[in-house]
Design a protein around this nucleic acid. Structure first.
Length: 607
DNA sequence: CTAAATCAGTTTCGATAGTC
DNA sequence: GACTATCGAAACTGATTTAG
């Protein structure tokens, strides 16, 4: 059937568009970011998997779609995009079929998700959605719960946070990468078919696929969002917020295992790794990009993690590996497969594998017993030819019995190996000890020879030094003799000087005595003179006192007379003023028009 | 199928000691 | 006092598992 055979369009035509089949449209226009530290405080926070609503059909024009052949290519493409703009995408959703093997031809033929794109039939078999690392927070619910707990503690006056909280990377960025796993049918129709003809074409494809007339190939369609979808810093501004690349982390762990133990050395190794492996033949990332140029404390942190892992990880991991190695399936046992793999390390201190095997053996034995009893019971009850159910049970019993035996074998083998391994280890250790002892003895011998040589050399040096010292001592002895002679001469001189000094001292003493006598006499004369002076002073003082007493009496008498005179004068003045005042008052009364004065005159005249 | 829980791994904070 | 190295542990992240 060709496309030109059906020209009329039917009203119920199924129209397949990319947008119809692509049911996750998370991309919306970039929005202003919420305060990243306030997400927990926001009670109306978007649920972590509440995907924002679909954007308009124009959203498609902001996306770049690329088809690649393998999932590795997908990862490479995303990494290139991340490097170009300093971004990081993490898994948001993934369907099971995205990673599972390709479906059968029948399932493709019956699929509804078969559509034509540019004339090529495709079928969607799985999808994976990546979100920007600053996207929605998958741990939102647990963070909200923790916040509630913190609030409860704070209400009770306690602080649950033991240190300042580091800011979350989550900023609800809406940028998503969508990857579709498609099966591309290896045929081509004319592009720009009408909807009706597309439908007919799809029906044909389904028929031919069922008849195995078409083959198909696995392809991946990567849909990258435009950088304008991101609501945070990108490019140079985002360099400092990048997490360390997992490949570098693995490299650090590897190098720590090889003995690199300083941050500086590790930094050199990382730079080399970047130049020679990660970016061989490409431009190196900016030094500010922390994804490939970690800070010292980040390197240090990973080195410490690696050391801890090395310390505690080896035994447990080894045990796990051993159990996996000896775990042969029942089918293998039934097929006569012999266990040939030798357990690598059977650590007697931590025989996890042994315990595991023992537990499994016990449980299998129990199962076998239960099944045997069931068979016995069924046999007793029916007492006829074994029906199919009993046969099945018997088969199960046999199977479990075989499994039990194989486990028993493995257990014995493991036990033997543990013993031999332990012995071997002991021997190895003793050999190591002997080797170490031999090397230490050799070292001691060489050390002692070196020491002896050194001592001889020192001895000769000391001898020569002693000869020199002897000469010096002789010369010193001579010098000492000379000094002794001069000392005796000086002693004689001192004796002579001593005698002269004694004589001079006697003379001085005599002179001092005479002077003392003179001084004594002079002192007596001075005392007599002082007595005389005191007497004269007394006489003088007495005469002065007499003169002063006579003058005092005279003065007192004069003062008394003057006082009396003054008092008398005052009395006279007072009397005179009273008389004068009375005269004036009388004069006034006589000559004034005062009625009282007139009446007094008439009265007088009447009298 | 989705959301929550869990786990392993990563990053960051803060205290301490040593050096210049 | 500024700077760095080291260490322990808290806080954060991403992937997987589990419950409903």
């Amino acid at each position: 059937m060709t496309m030109s055979e059906n020209q009329t369009e039917q009203p119920n035509t199924i129209v397949y568009h990319l947008t119809d089949l692509f049911d996750i449209h998370q991309d919306i226009a970039p929005v202003e970011s919420d305060d990243k530290d306030c997400i927990l405080a926001n009670t109306t926070v978007m649920h972590k998997l509440d995907v924002p609503p679909a954007m308009s059909a124009n959203a498609q024009i902001h996306r770049t779609k690329t088809c690649v052949a393998t999932y590795e290519d997908v990862k490479a493409l995303i990494e290139q995009h991340e490097l170009e703009h300093t971004l990081k995408f993490v898994t948001f959703k993934v369907t099971k079929a995205f990673t599972s093997p390709a479906p059968s031809v029948e399932s493709i033929a019956s699929s509804k998700h078969l559509f034509l794109e540019d004339g090529i039939p495709y079928m969607i078999i799985g999808k994976k959605v990546y979100q920007c690392q600053h996207g929605v927070d998958k741990n939102m619910s647990s963070k909200i719960k923790y916040k509630e707990r913190v609030d409860a503690y704070q209400a009770a006056g306690q602080n649950l946070y033991k240190r300042r909280r580091s800011s979350s990377k989550k900023m609800r960025c809406r940028a998503y990468i969508t990857v579709r796993r498609l099966l591309k049918v290896n045929t081509v129709f004319a592009p720009n078919l009408s909807l009706y003809h597309k439908r007919i074409a799809i029906q044909n494809v389904k028929k031919k696929l069922s008849a195995n007339e078409y083959t198909f190939t696995d392809v991946y369609e990567v849909s990258l969002p435009d950088v304008s979808f991101h609501n945070h810093d990108i490019d140079e501004e985002a360099d400092g917020k990048q997490a360390l690349d997992p490949r570098i982390i693995r490299k650090i762990h590897k190098l720590v295992g090889k003995g690199v133990d300083t941050v500086k050395a590790m930094r050199v190794h990382i730079e080399e790794y970047n130049e020679d492996v990660l970016f061989a033949g490409r431009a190196l990332p900016r030094p500010s990009n922390r994804r490939f140029n970690p800070l010292n404390h980040t390197i240090d942190s990973h080195m410490r993690n690696a050391k801890q892992k090395l310390k505690k990880g080896t035994c447990a991991n080894a045990a796990k590996v051993d159990v996996a190695t000896v775990d042969v399936t029942v089918e293998d046992v039934a097929a006569g497969v012999v266990v040939t793999t030798i357990p690598s390390i059977m650590a007697p201190s931590k025989p996890d594998n042994l315990i595991d095997l023992q537990i499994r053996l016990e449980s299998l034995k129990g199962t076998v017993n239960i099944l045997s009893e069931k068979v016995k019971h069924a046999n007793d009850g029916v007492n006829v030819k074994l029906p199919s159910r009993i046969q099945k049970l018997q088969k199960d019993v046999d199977l479990q019995q075989r499994r039990s035996e194989s486990i028993q074998d493995k257990l014995e083998y493991v036990q033997e190996n543990i013993v031999s391994k332990a012995e071997f280890k002991r021997l190895e250790q003793s050999v190591k000890g002997m080797k170490a002892m031999t090397s230490s003895v050799t070292k001691l011998r060489t050390d002692s020879i070196t020491h002896m040589n050194r001592t001889n050399r020192d001895l000769s040096r000391v001898q020569s030094a002693a000869k020199l010292q002897g000469k010096v001592v002789n010369s010193l002895f001579m010098e000492q003799k000379q000094v002794k002679g001069s000392v005796s001469n000086m002693r004689e001189e001192v004796n002579v000087l001593d005698g002269a000094a004694k004589k001079a001292l006697d003379i001085i003493k005599q002179e001092m005595d005479s002077l003392y006598d003179q001084d004594h006499r002079t002192q007596k004369q001075l005392d007599e003179l002082e007595e005389r002076v005191e007497k004269i002073v007394e006489v003088l003082n007495r005469g002065e006192n007499d003169r002063e007493s006579k003058h005092g009496l005279k003065l007192e008498m004069v003062e008394k007379e003057v006082t009396k005179l003054f008092k008398f004068m005052c009395l006279v003045i007072l009397a005179m003023s009273i008389v004068m005042f009375w005269c004036l008052w009388w004069q006034y009364r006589v000559h004034s028009r005062d009625p009282r004065t007139v009446l007094s005159q008439r009265q007088r005249a009447g009298l």
